[in-house]
Simulated assay, not measured.
Amino acid sequence: MQDSTVHNIQETIEYQKNSIVSKTVIDKDTGTVTLFAFDEGQNLSEHSAPHEAMVHVIDGVGEYTIGGKTHRVEAGEMIVMPADIPHSVRAPEKFKMVLIMIENIEE
């Protein structure tokens, strides 16, 4: 999808029952942009990444536990996940998000 065509972000990824669906939009050495659609009740268990990340919820509500603190993020809101901090994601209802990860490049 790396072209200059206009896309409707809500229609670019669809929900699937009892699943988490992901679609990579940009994949570069310096970072990625990925769309996710979580069905209600789905989750990503606690993990950490060596990259800074920003999540923008575009539909529904997601719950993010970052460093032991839980945040409820609604459509139109975003949250930053610092590198190397354990985090998890839970879908109390179905929701869609955009995940932007930026590589930490040491000079």
Rank of each mutant, 00 (worst) to 15 (best):
residue 3 D to R: 03
residue 16 Q to N: 06
residue 10 Q to Y: 11
residue 93 E to W: 01
residue 16 Q to G: 05
residue 22 S to W: 02
residue 83 A to E: 11
residue 36 F to M: 03
residue 93 E to I: 07
residue 97 M to C: 14
residue 76 G to R: 06
residue 81 M to V: 15
residue 8 N to V: 06
residue 66 I to E: 00
residue 21 V to P: 01
residue 60 G to W: 06
residue 26 I to L: 15
residue 33 V to H: 01
residue 8 N to L: 11
residue 94 K to M: 11
residue 16 Q to H: 10
residue 91 A to R: 08
residue 101 M to K: 14
residue 21 V to A: 07
residue 26 I to A: 13
residue 79 I to D: 10
residue 47 H to K: 08
residue 4 S to I: 08
residue 76 G to S: 09
residue 7 H to S: 08
residue 53 A to T: 03
residue 101 M to R: 13
residue 106 E to V: 13
residue 61 V to F: 01
residue 54 M to R: 01
residue 64 Y to M: 12
residue 13 I to H: 03
residue 15 Y to L: 08
residue 88 S to L: 03
residue 21 V to Y: 09
residue 70 T to D: 02
residue 14 E to W: 00
residue 90 R to S: 14
residue 91 A to V: 07
residue 54 M to K: 08
residue 98 V to H: 05
residue 77 E to Q: 15
residue 103 E to C: 02
residue 33 V to S: 12
residue 43 N to K: 13
residue 43 N to F: 14
residue 96 K to C: 03
residue 104 N to K: 15
residue 73 V to G: 08
residue 16 Q to A: 07
residue 73 V to D: 04
residue 84 D to A: 07
residue 85 I to V: 15
residue 39 D to N: 11
residue 57 V to T: 02
residue 4 S to E: 12
residue 70 T to E: 06
residue 90 R to I: 07
residue 38 F to E: 03
residue 41 G to T: 01
residue 8 N to W: 04
residue 102 I to W: 02
residue 100 I to D: 06
residue 74 E to V: 10
residue 55 V to G: 04
residue 99 L to D: 09
residue 79 I to S: 04
residue 56 H to M: 13
residue 54 M to W: 07
residue 27 D to L: 07
residue 45 S to V: 10
residue 84 D to M: 08
residue 33 V to C: 10
residue 76 G to T: 04
residue 53 A to G: 14
residue 42 Q to V: 03
residue 25 V to A: 12
residue 26 I to G: 01
residue 76 G to A: 09
residue 77 E to G: 04
residue 6 V to S: 06
residue 102 I to G: 13
residue 59 D to H: 05
residue 50 P to Y: 07
residue 56 H to Q: 12
residue 80 V to H: 06
residue 105 I to Q: 14
residue 26 I to V: 15
residue 86 P to V: 00
residue 38 F to S: 09
residue 15 Y to E: 03
residue 43 N to V: 00
residue 43 N to E: 15
residue 91 A to L: 06
residue 65 T to N: 06
